[in-house]
Design a protein around this nucleic acid. Structure first.
Lengths: 217, 217
DNA sequence: GTTACCAATATTGGCGCCAATTTATGATAC
DNA sequence: GTATCATAAATTGGCGCCAATATTGGTAAC
């Protein structure tokens, strides 16, 4: 009864292995193409074999890792065509919500968004990759929530993961990250000004991540 | 060695249990709210415990069944709000593709669609619920394929399953089904006429499934 | 020196058992 | 007669073992 639940990081032990592997893929700690040997994961996350297997199965359902029968699982190699298509889908969904967002916006939600945008900027400087990634997610989640379609919010979060498995290539330059931060604030401005068309334009540009990425030869 | 593999449906034995459970949910053979006891499924599909568990885990990831720890899994109770939201998402995605569809349409694709629409009509009369469901899926898949976004096709197929778990309520009346069949052909007509706006309107109406369903009191 | 084949090792993946928890049933007390 | 508690049955879910398969390294032959 009076048993201590955990020492310090007890909660993290409790957490699902799937989440841990997912995070390591998203942060680039497990690069694309890496073979995920069950024994390695077992030791890495200090968990049992069935837990590892369930995590791998779930991630392969989400198409984040690929499964080759009798060979194992490896991190999905990002595909240019797929990345573009997922980007297009996100633009369709998120710009379609722009009207609703403007209709539902309040001073409170503006304030909340501004706070999340600032938090993102902070994390750019002081946070870990994961914190930064999640700050970005939180902002876009809050923004989309204004659309009033909960299912759509979840869906976008979901498909977001499908190509962000290439965090290195997309978030490489500091210039790009800082541009993202500015774009967040510009979106809030457009929202406050009730300018639907400008908001749509900004969302599309933001998702497309225009090719200012220096082609490393 | 000369052992007979199976009596008749030998191939179906080889198939994934997840698919089988999914089909039974979709066809209404396992109604919403049903508790899916592992032993029952084990016997029903003649498979092992781990197979059942993996199937249940996958389906709960897809939000088709709900998991209550230490209590088991049960078929998801369809939620009106969610159903509406998923419908809205489908309308956004599928109407957004209308321009591309019209741009990419050929006489061959018209012919293929016409064939699938006719096949759907046939299945209305002679097919099983599953065949009918799949004929419908095949038509919409082929239609969406014209949009040129493979990821979007898969995504729609996926989210389609999220609410079609209430097949009874949506496909109840024969009148509604026949109306669906006619709408398919009207979509093809609009496509052949390169009429984007009409196509969008038809898609929206078709997905929305206007309330001609007799409210059973 | 190189290539092909075979053996040893490592990894995957299927299967079943047992502990923990929950639910149903029956008995007893009020 | 009803409510409550205890005991028994059933169900879930965690864990580990073992067979099947792929990979790697070594050896021998050309």
């Amino acid at each position: 009864m009076s048993e201590v639940q955990s020492e310090t990081a007890g909660v993290s032990e409790e957490r699902d292995v799937t989440e841990l592997v997912l995070q390591d893929i998203l942060t680039g700690m497990l690069p694309a193409g890496t073979w995920l040997k069950q024994i390695d994961l077992e030791r890495r996350y200090d968990c049992t074999r069935p837990e590892v297997r369930r995590a791998l199965d779930r991630l392969s359902q989400k198409r984040l890792v690929a499964h080759v029968p009798n060979r194992g699982y490896h991190v999905y190699q990002p595909d240019d065509r797929r990345a573009k298509e997922v980007g297009d889908i996100r633009i369709i969904l998120e710009t379609a919500m722009a009207d609703m967002m403007v209709a539902n916006v309040t001073t409170d939600s503006i304030a909340a968004l501004r706070g999340l945008a600032r938090y993102f900027d902070e994390m750019t400087l002081t946070g870990t990759i994961l914190e930064h990634y999640e700050a970005n997610l939180a902002f876009h989640r809050e923004l989309l929530l204004l659309g009033g379609n909960q299912e759509l919010v979840d869906l976008v979060s979901e498909i977001r993961q499908r190509t962000s498995s290439a965090p290195v290539s997309q978030w490489r330059t500091r210039a790009r990250i800082e541009k993202s931060g500015r774009e967040h604030h510009m979106m809030i401005d457009a929202l406050a000004a009730r300018d639907v068309e400008e908001l749509k334009r900004l969302i599309a540009v933001h998702i497309r991540q225009p090719a200012d990425i220096p082609k490393q030869v």
